[in-house]
Amino acid sequence: MSSTLGTGATSEIEVGADAIEASRVNGTRVYNTDGDNLGHIYDIVIGKRDGRVKYAIMSFGGFLGIGEEYHPLPWEVLKYDERQGGYVVGITIDQLKDAPRFGAAERPNWVDADYGRRINDYYGVAYY
């Protein structure tokens, strides 16, 4: 796959089994282990200092952007499934309804360690 860099130069970028551009993650479907389509990746949250992907923000519900909610999923709980062409998370739709979330007009405070702990605790993942 070739890509145009900001300088106008073209470079070949190889995307392997463990590497993908963030722009390609956005829009990727998210399924639960039963195969139900839960939503899609809206954005990702990256640690400023360590460069690690912390959360995938999954868009859930709504219609044409109205009533949509966003669920931060710890990156560790997502597994990519090539057969489905999307990420799989071990959570039911009912469990997702009680999961930490925010609305389109809200912005989480990613600096708030308590907020991060609540998300990670809900999904049973250790906080960084």
Rank of each mutant, 00 (worst) to 15 (best):
128 Y>M: 08
18 D>M: 04
128 Y>E: 15
126 A>F: 03
9 A>E: 15
34 D>C: 04
102 F>K: 09
17 A>Y: 07
104 A>T: 03
28 T>H: 13
3 S>R: 15
77 V>F: 12
56 A>V: 06
101 R>Y: 10
43 D>Q: 11
58 M>L: 13
57 I>W: 05
22 A>M: 09
72 P>V: 09
99 A>N: 04
118 R>A: 13
20 I>W: 04
95 Q>S: 12
100 P>D: 07
9 A>C: 11
122 Y>V: 15
34 D>W: 03
22 A>R: 10
104 A>W: 06
69 E>A: 04
83 R>I: 08
105 A>H: 00
42 Y>I: 01
47 G>F: 03
64 L>P: 00
121 D>W: 07
71 H>G: 11
101 R>Q: 05
25 V>P: 01
77 V>P: 15
61 G>M: 08
19 A>G: 12
78 L>C: 10
114 D>T: 10
60 F>D: 06
100 P>W: 06
93 I>R: 15
70 Y>M: 07
43 D>I: 02
91 I>C: 01
70 Y>Q: 05
60 F>S: 08
37 N>H: 15
37 N>Q: 14
59 S>I: 12
72 P>D: 13
38 L>Y: 08
39 G>E: 02
102 F>W: 10
73 L>D: 09
73 L>W: 10
116 G>V: 03
127 Y>N: 13
106 E>W: 05
128 Y>P: 15
117 R>Q: 08
30 V>F: 09
1 M>D: 13
10 T>K: 09
83 R>P: 01
95 Q>V: 06
124 G>C: 06
55 Y>R: 02
78 L>M: 11
72 P>H: 12
80 Y>W: 14
11 S>K: 15
72 P>Q: 13
44 I>F: 00
20 I>C: 02
80 Y>E: 05
57 I>S: 10
29 R>E: 06
67 G>L: 11
51 G>V: 04
85 G>S: 09
128 Y>W: 10
4 T>W: 11
100 P>M: 08
119 I>M: 02
59 S>E: 14
92 T>I: 00
125 V>R: 12
99 A>L: 05
77 V>G: 15
31 Y>L: 05
41 I>A: 09
121 D>K: 11
119 I>A: 03
102 F>G: 10
63 F>W: 15
111 V>Y: 03
24 R>C: 00
83 R>A: 15
59 S>H: 14
74 P>V: 12
42 Y>Q: 14
54 K>Y: 04
125 V>T: 08
18 D>K: 05
92 T>S: 07
105 A>M: 01
73 L>S: 11
39 G>N: 03
67 G>V: 11
36 D>C: 07
60 F>T: 02
97 K>Y: 03
86 G>F: 05
60 F>R: 10
81 D>R: 01
25 V>T: 04
63 F>N: 15
52 R>I: 06
124 G>R: 06
69 E>L: 06
64 L>D: 09
44 I>Q: 03
66 I>R: 14
83 R>G: 11
90 G>W: 03
68 E>L: 02
29 R>N: 06
24 R>N: 04
127 Y>T: 13
97 K>C: 01
97 K>Q: 09
70 Y>S: 05
112 D>A: 07
113 A>L: 10
30 V>K: 04
111 V>W: 03
109 N>S: 07
69 E>K: 12
109 N>M: 01
52 R>Q: 12
80 Y>M: 07
19 A>Y: 09
26 N>P: 00
18 D>G: 02
60 F>L: 01
41 I>N: 05
103 G>F: 13
119 I>D: 01
105 A>E: 01
7 T>Y: 01
114 D>Y: 07
